[in-house]
Write a protein that binds this DNA or RNA. Structure first.
Lengths: 348, 348
DNA sequence: CCTCCCTTGGAAATCGTTATCCAGGGACGT
DNA sequence: ACGTCCCTGGATAACGATTTCCAAGGGAGG
């Protein structure tokens, strides 16, 4: 685990060769380390001759500054941390990619951590990131309540942006307006003639899940009070979708539409409906959420909600870098887009 | 971007409050910093009294060592870098997750980078990671030829493991035997009665793509020489799958089976076939690769190749940490598993 | 021509740790 | 009783950069 390597030398003996330090560059150029630093950063004017000499020396030695030493001195590591509940959730990779791109434009790296949807692990990760003296944190808290202390702890030390999910209301946040999106889904279904609904979701304690559920309840109550209570909670997986659909069918009371909090769940539901000979959308309408690749490729194509993931990631990165300004009240809500496809179009 | 924060003080004036240093702990405990370090690391025995005092002092001040300073002194950052061509490719998140888990068990962090399948960017990322003095690199080189120099550069400085894709043969590698997997696909299709094939792949210069193509050619040549040349190369996307299928259909010479290098591509193909009224598997058999969630949920379910992603990630992390030992020849090839589903089962 | 200021280079302090080195004291053997 | 060795604690020197601070030199203005 040493940052050194053995280079072959003519003596026939191997010799340790570390990357050159600023001091070696200085000696090679016949100047002081301070001058080298100034030349390389343009911090202060340097005589053209010395400047040229250090520049060629640096180039010849292939000098690159040790960022660890730099970080210790300047108190800035050029790294921001990101904590997400589950990298394998197709939602996040796209956001991560956008974050990384934006950060890279500023020469900043991303330290990625997966909390595995575990609050304890999450807290440990945050502390560890702080130990590493990262310059900021992008945080997607897995639990809107239990994650609060971790968010506060970190936000007190470095610029922090909550991304997608929010645990603390007076810390910067960027995400989409879940309630508006879910309301739009229900309104669409009502317009298609649906009155009786069921909602398949997860037991996730994420803020987004809570918001979607709230919006579902509020929206369906208007047309059919009892539907507001018809909620099935498991995990965000195909299998749970299958299990939930099984229960819905077994109950012998098929709703007009099954609303899902996630595409995977919706496709699990679809799978079971199909195997039971229940046709979508002829006998029951179906909607997903997130508009992953799954949605457009399903048969029938699945109505879903597309979130502007790239924008979320980019904005999150911008905020965490821009820092300082208005740390309290920066909340960026984007609008999601309802993608209506066959699975929710009444044909009859 | 400062690691400091303002804490409220009774003076009514804000005051800088940095996390406590080892020196402050030492003062609070009435010992020297060296002793604190020794107590905290158990490097050398310390008198029980002093030991107890420093321990309580550390606890009271909530002391956590500054990893940047530690890294500078010990030349080990407790961080390994990972460079992948595209985080949004569903293949990688699972691997990343496994890597992260394994690293975490050793208290090591992951610095994730997305090269965007660009060799220049990739090289820049690697140099930047080295500047950060990461303890090792997990590298999925995007180009089996042009990425070689970057791999060599990095491997000369830190433990490096190529993951999934290989550019340099005498640097550690962990992945699956692509040729065996693709051969198995073709053999299965031949057993189902197929003789004439088409291959839809990407122009990717990744080693894996090359290996799959080679295996395809070798295997189909046995039953129908001309099929070996029937290769369509684009990108790993739904849209390219659609475009390729369109061309195959337009050519008016439908093969017995369409073999795809990727699930997304296969589903694009499937989409167009369906819209043309061509039924799978009745009129043409279809296979994918990677066995993503897409494969099992498609209609008909898609035959695909499942790679042991968790094992790859775990083994990669183990290797990069274990380092040192046999740096040259550690090649870990796992076996993929052919998942046969409806899309490639001859029913007639 | 002198003085003052401003420019520029280098020496040295600093960031927060860990590791080396040294000194003092107790134990043990002779 | 004395010498030697070990054991432990602290002072101190790195690690590799940046950034004061200081001094010398040159230019401008009186």
């Amino acid at each position: 685990m040493q940052g050194q390597r053995c280079a072959t030398t003519r003596g026939g003996r191997a010799e340790i060769s570390s990357p050159p330090t600023i001091r070696q560059v200085a000696e090679a150029a016949g100047v002081s380390p301070a001058t080298v630093s100034r030349v390389l950063h343009g911090t202060r004017p340097v005589h053209p001759d010395l400047r040229a000499r250090t520049l060629t020396a640096a180039q010849q030695l292939n000098y690159r500054a040790n960022r660890v030493a730099q970080a210790l001195r300047t108190r800035s590591t050029g790294t921001v941390g990101m904590v997400v509940p589950n990298v394998a959730n197709p939602f996040f990779p796209v956001v991560i990619q956008a974050v990384e791109n934006e950060l890279r434009r500023h020469g900043v790296h991303l330290l990625l951590c997966d909390s595995g949807d575990d609050v304890r692990e999450e807290a440990e990760l945050v502390r560890s990131l702080l130990d590493h003296r990262i310059d900021g944190i992008l945080f997607s808290p897995c639990d809107r309540l239990s994650s609060q202390s971790a968010v506060r702890l970190a936000a007190g030390r470095v610029p922090l942006v909550q991304i997608d999910r929010q645990a603390v209301s007076d810390v910067a946040y960027v995400g989409v307006d879940q309630e508006a999106a879910m309301s739009e889904v229900i309104e669409h279904l009502i317009a298609e003639g649906c009155r009786r609904f069921a909602y398949v979701s997860s037991t996730s304690r994420a803020s987004t899940a809570a918001e979607r559920l709230r919006a579902y309840r509020r929206a369906v109550k208007v047309v059919h009070a009892r539907s507001a209570e018809r909620v099935y909670q498991g995990t965000f997986s195909l299998d749970w979708g299958r299990a939930a659909a099984q229960r819905i069918v077994d109950e012998g009371d098929l709703p007009d539409a099954i609303v899902c909090a996630n595409d995977s769940v919706a496709l699990g539901v679809l799978d079971v409906l199909r195997s039971k000979g229940l046709r979508v959308p002829e006998e029951v309408l179906l909607t997903g959420f997130d508009d992953t690749e799954l949605a457009s490729i399903a048969w029938p194509p699945l109505t879903s909600v597309r979130q502007p993931l790239e924008m979320i990631g980019r904005k999150g990165a911008e905020l965490v870098l821009g820092s300082g300004a208005v740390p309290g009240k920066s909340v960026n809500l984007f609008k999601a887009e309802l993608k209506i496809r066959e699975s929710s179009r009444r044909r009859a």
